[in-house]
Design a protein around this nucleic acid. Structure first.
Lengths: 138, 138
DNA sequence: CTTGCTGCAAAGCTTTTGCATTCCT
DNA sequence: AGGAATGCAAAAGCTTTGCAGCAAG
């Protein structure tokens, strides 16, 4: 099992203010893919005076540090994933936007030399699109 | 070779007004992944009085019809791809946002029964992240 | 005549920014 | 005290919407 987000942050030299701790706390757990707004709402329940700007800037810092992964799944708002394991992908309901983790053993097909267009390659993510049961019947 | 977007639209019963024709024209060609704003700008060069709202609504309709694919690659603005072939994926520069097509022979790994979470599966898209040559050296 | 498309402007949602204040060592 | 983090409010970027006018069958 991988260490939790909060544990990882303590192990780095990252100043854990109460606001930052609450943001990390809210993002803790498996299969968590919250929008910035959802994080702010959940954080507000614990720490009522936390501001939107702080939530946004914390999310951006953690993403920058590699402790969160930013997901652009639907063109609306970004989602934040505390699971940064490799070969970890997503299944999205195109109806309601709900997200499930998909953990594979194998990596996606590699690119041939001319397919890379001289770019330095980073990770490859797979987005599986689908429709969940609630969104099927109208 | 697949028929072009404009050809496909003519073959359906889609009313081709001058505005819609210009939008389709601008999106014609290989390796095209424009934002709505880019489409509007390019369209304005041809048809100066075309409005933003019309461009947006046309893009949404064509996406709905399955003639365009909406790409959420970077959490900023959506991009529109006239190439709707299967096993067609994307390589994105995380620096400048430029996009290249990637055409594979094989499909991504399939999901096991419990991985689908009872969802009806649609397409699977792979996003390869990387850094292009211009974005490498600071 | 009737339906649908367009343009304009306004509103909506998400995210970022500037600046004064507060917090923490 | 001094540097960093926070909150507030304003601004910025992207997209949708309501409505009046126009075009086309």
């Amino acid at each position: 099992m991988h260490p939790s987000l909060l544990t990882r942050l303590r192990d780095r030299d990252y100043r854990l203010t109460s606001q930052r701790r609450v943001v990390a706390q809210v993002l803790e757990g498996p299969n968590v893919h919250m929008t910035a707004d959802a994080v702010h709402q959940a954080a507000t329940d614990i720490l009522p005076e936390i501001s939107r700007a702080t939530v946004y800037s914390t999310l951006n810092e953690l993403t920058q540090m590699g402790e969160l992964r930013e997901l652009s799944l639907d063109g609306r708002s970004k989602r934040y994933d505390p699971n940064v394991a490799p070969n970890h992908h997503h299944l999205v309901c195109d109806g309601c936007g709900q997200v499930f983790d998909v953990q594979h053993e194998v990596a996606p097909p590699t690119l041939t030399a001319d397919e890379t267009h001289c770019m330095t390659l980073g990770r490859a993510e797979i987005i599986y699109h689908g429709t969940c049961v609630s969104c099927t019947a109208p």
